[in-house]
Nucleic acid binder design. Structure first.
Length: 362
DNA sequence: TAGAGACGGCCCACTGAATT
DNA sequence: AATTCAGTGGGCCGTCTCTA
């Protein structure tokens, strides 16, 4: 990475970052201690240490968790870069780097599981307050690094900025980012970044819906745009559920009329379609398989139970597993488990439908 | 002394890179 | 090409400390 900006100058230690954070994003403003607590100080130090600013050298939570006192003490650009690269590879790579440096201190700042408060509390809160630049093109469940500091926020940690100059700079930043309009601006920028990478699905009723980027969303789009209009007489998309998101209900009124509860705790299909054609009158329960999770006998029974518990007749339920291709590994892996009485559909062969039927039932 | 907050730990589903 | 592994996302819970 030859065109990377220079690494920023650092403050003395974590304590110094905590002190500044308490001025910039105090709990009294953010409503949570996560914006300026010890974890937040560790995050700020580490992000500045590796130069995670303005889209360059993004980190993930483990980059913070794996930092150690011995590493933090090494301030050469080459060492900082070396830690960044090691932390991108694995914890073992960090161990190896420490060994190469002859560091005896083997304790990371935080245990691996502490990534959760780092991610869920500190980084979330910073993002809400315009302190981060949202990662672009990184899938929700990807382990790729995505977090960088907003350059204006990072500038507040400049060691040469002290006393009155620091106070002024902080007040200026707060007035641009922490006001109602500042927050709204951050939210809009965040939404715009997400929309740019979204998968746009055209619904049967003419509307559109944006889904997260990823193979699953491409398959969902295929089912809605290519499968449903051909196979269903009068298709309606009732809801879509995506990882990392509450169930996305598209037709609340219909869901209510059907009397189906959308309970987050229970097993729900990835996609629920209804065929309102009076001659067909069916409910399509669809599972989308990018890697795993087809309609197995167990899943079929659970989904059927969910539907029939609420008055849907079993003979009105259709079960479909949607795949990217029948030539790809996920389908081959799923074949032995596919539930009898379910269908399979493939994104790369949208005009076909594979039926696994009970001979006696037909 | 009860309740709230902080923090570390565990679980599940899913993804992409590394390994075989 | 298939499988494994490590790390992400979303959750929940137990323990400790501080405070009302």
């Amino acid at each position: 990475m030859p065109d990377q900006p220079a690494l920023p100058a650092l403050l003395a230690d974590r304590t110094a970052y905590k002190a500044r954070l308490e001025q910039i994003l105090p709990a009294s403003i953010t409503g949570t201690t996560a914006s300026a607590n010890e974890i937040a100080a560790a995050v700020a130090f580490t992000m500045m240490y590796v130069g995670a600013v303005d889209g360059h050298r993004p980190i993930r939570p483990s980059t913070v968790a794996w930092m150690r006192d011995g590493i933090a003490a090494r301030r050469d650009d080459a060492d900082r870069q070396a830690y960044y690269l090691a932390a991108l590879r694995s914890k073992q790579a960090v161990d190896a780097q420490c060994h190469a440096w002859g560091l005896t201190e083997t304790r990371s700042w935080y245990a691996d599981n502490s990534r959760e408060p780092i991610r869920d509390e500190t980084l979330r809160t910073w993002a809400d307050n315009g302190a981060l630049v949202s990662g672009s093109g990184v899938q929700t469940t990807s382990s790729a690094p995505r977090y960088t500091l907003h350059p204006d926020f990072a500038a507040l940690f400049d060691p040469t900025l002290t006393g009155e100059k620091l106070d002024t700079a902080i007040k200026d930043w707060q007035s641009r980012h922490l006001t109602l309009t500042g927050r709204a601006r951050a939210a809009r920028a965040h939404a715009a970044a997400r929309a740019e990478e979204a998968v746009v699905v055209h619904l049967p009723d003419g509307g559109t819906r944006e889904l997260h980027i990823g193979a699953s969303s491409e398959i969902i789009r295929g089912v809605i745009e290519q499968f449903a209009p051909v196979r269903l007489g009068d298709p309606v998309v009732i809801f879509v559920s995506q990882s990392g998101e509450k169930v996305n209900v598209l037709d609340e009124a219909l869901l209510k009329r059907l009397g189906l509860p959308v309970d987050q705790q229970r097993l729900l299909p990835d996609l629920l379609l209804a065929d309102l054609d009076p001659a067909r009158d069916a409910l399509w329960l669809v599972e989308v398989v990018a890697t795993d999770g087809p309609i197995t006998e167990e899943r079929r029974a659970a989904l059927l139970g969910w539907a029939t518990d609420h008055g849907v007749s079993p003979d009105r339920c259709r079960f479909l597993t949607a795949f990217e291709s029948r030539t790809a590994a996920p389908f081959k892996k799923a074949v032995p488990q596919l539930a009898r009485g379910s269908y399979a559909w493939f994104l790369d062969e949208p005009d076909g439908l594979l039926a696994w039927e009970d001979l006696a039932a037909e």
